[in-house]
Design a protein around this nucleic acid. Structure first.
Length: 362
RNA sequence: CGGGACGUAGCUCAAUCUGGCAGAGCAAUGGACUGUAGAUCCAUCGGUUGCCGGUUCAAAUCCGGCCGUCCCGACCA
């Protein structure tokens, strides 16, 4: 595969890339650069995690990227997920790995690592202190949005460790690329700032799109950058809001009823969750999207590209209800293999039942 | 260590001073209107008032204890 093709694949997963020039250079220099994404093990797997993340991963692997999955159990602990119970968090981490395997992530091409296994490393903590020493409190505070919490929820000193530790992870994992969601960009940018100060490298930051929740995302006018960031975090599909998220364990009926209740104004693209999933999930997975509808509503049709679908929707040729019906079928098709994997009696099922029994805390 | 404020519905809060049916907004649910949703009307649901004890005919309210949360403690303002 030539450089241009690899660049296209890798750049294609990013909504924002800092910077494209550096990315091209990196791909030129290294055949198998290391990229990573980190997850706080908490809650049940939803579309962004179980379906979207693996789709992006497929392209990265194709381009020769060596990918590391960082199961950030200590971070979930700091962030008071799962009631701050590290044992529950670790079990949830095991469940996460199982979800990915069920989603078809090749376990020989991806490395799964638990943060807790690195926490007895003196080098790790030395780097944390060194990063902390070149980071002001104000700078760290600005990065705290990565934890997805409101100001009033940020009162523990441990929470200030979080961004500094996350920056340290990047160097611990020897990541050339940080490939996390847009909500995590501030920690990654922090790593770019401190890297050179510590005689380390500047990772290329490739941030992927955040899928919006079923309630939609109407952005208020006149937000500044911080306001837009916060709005994006507020309106992303979140595991802690079950009614506005689709999970990989949801039955087809459940998916249908959730989609039926979803925000979907006619002819409107902005903040429309169904077009969002169509663009980022369906057209990444299928060559075309079929829409079945009665003859009086125009009869069956098919879209080969997202842009075609969008044009038709804006023009009012595609009715929201027909879009919803088609999306139900397509999303169910993607969720089904994962759902079935966990329904079969066995170790995956008992792991799932165990995590399900845990009380979900945001 | 010392001082202060607070704890009421899923969330934000009112009622506490002066004891007398525990309430509002938002959220949720259901209907009307829509070939979806939203918006808008209409309706419904929602509570061990942090816990234990005391006073009283009567306690969210007063008293005691416990648990929990938050703020303050050089100077300036």
């Amino acid at each position: 595969m030539d450089l241009e093709e690899r660049f296209k694949l890798v750049a294609g997963v990013g909504e924002e890339i800092v910077t494209k020039v550096e990315l091209r250079q990196l791909l030129e220099e290294k055949k198998n650069p290391i990229a990573y994404d980190g997850f706080e093990p908490s809650g049940m797997a939803h579309l962004p995690f179980g379906v979207y993340r693996p789709l992006l991963l497929k392209d990265l692997i194709k381009a020769g990227i060596k990918f590391k999955i960082w199961l950030a159990d200590w971070f979930a602990w700091i962030n008071n997920k799962m009631g701050g119970d590290l044992d529950k968090i670790k079990t949830t981490g095991e469940y996460f790995i199982e979800v990915w395997k069920a989603a078809g992530v090749p376990s020989d091409k991806v490395e799964f690592l638990f943060a807790s296994d690195a926490m007895d490393s003196i080098e790790y903590w030395e780097r944390v202190v060194r990063i902390a020493k070149v980071t002001t409190v104000a700078r760290a505070s600005r990065a705290l949005t990565i934890m997805g919490r409101r100001e009033g929820e940020m009162s523990e000193v441990a929470q200030y460790f979080y961004p500094v530790m996350q920056a340290s992870d990047i160097f611990h994992l020897e990541a050339d690329i940080t490939q996390l969601g847009m909500d995590q960009r501030r920690a990654n940018i922090l790593a770019r700032e401190v890297g050179p100060k510590l005689g380390l490298w500047k990772p290329v930051v490739i941030s992927h799109h955040m899928l919006i929740n079923l309630e939609g995302a109407i952005e208020p006018e006149g937000l500044d950058e911080a306001g837009r960031d916060w709005h994006m975090i507020q309106t992303k599909m979140s595991k802690s809001k079950p009614s506005s998220s689709i999970f990989v364990h949801d039955s087809e009926d459940k998916i249908r009823s959730k989609i039926m209740a979803a925000y979907c104004p006619p002819k409107e693209v902005k903040g429309n969750p169904l077009l969002d999933y169509a663009k980022h999930i369906v057209f990444r997975s299928f060559d075309a999207m079929k829409v079945e509808r009665k003859a009086k509503f125009g009869g069956d049709t098919e879209f080969r590209k997202y842009k075609e679908l969008e044009r038709s929707y804006i023009a009012g040729d595609l009715h929201p209800l027909d879009l919803k019906n088609a999306m139900t079928i397509h999303l169910d098709k993607l969720v089904q293999p994962i759902r079935k994997h966990f329904e079969k009696k066995g170790s995956a099922n008992s792991l799932y039942e165990r995590v399900k029994s845990y009380q979900v805390t945001r």
